[in-house]
Amino acid sequence: MLTLQFIPYADIDRLSSEKRIEKLLKIVKDEKIILLEGKLRAEEEASLIQRTMEEISKSFKGIEISPLNVHRKEDMAFFQKIKGRLINFLLGSRQGLTIIGPATIVKEIRQDPDKIELFTTTARKRK
């Protein structure tokens, strides 16, 4: 069975970067796919990869992660861009969606500017 867990941005908003990563990693290690409202900061993504590497074991092979932007940059008005950048700088981004899943379940997340495809491994393969 495939479990998707939605995490609203409000759930991680007040957490430190370390706590955010800890929370996300715990859910992924429970073999759930996270749909996170918003995006992590670039530094948080790097820390998530570092923490993931520390946790790699026979049963946990790592993660697949992919953010999805709701608005394409060229569609945004100038002031929206400035506002977006300021929010990104201060709080990380609330816009868009980030998919994070365990590599044992999510084989690949393929994205291009207009679509996102999630490829999962078959249940038999996982066992």
Binding site: I49, T52, I56, K61, G62, A103
Partner: peptide, 11 residues
Amino acid sequence: VDTPGIATKID
């Protein structure tokens, strides 16, 4: 500086 490849999963 040549660095190891960065990956999110290693099996």
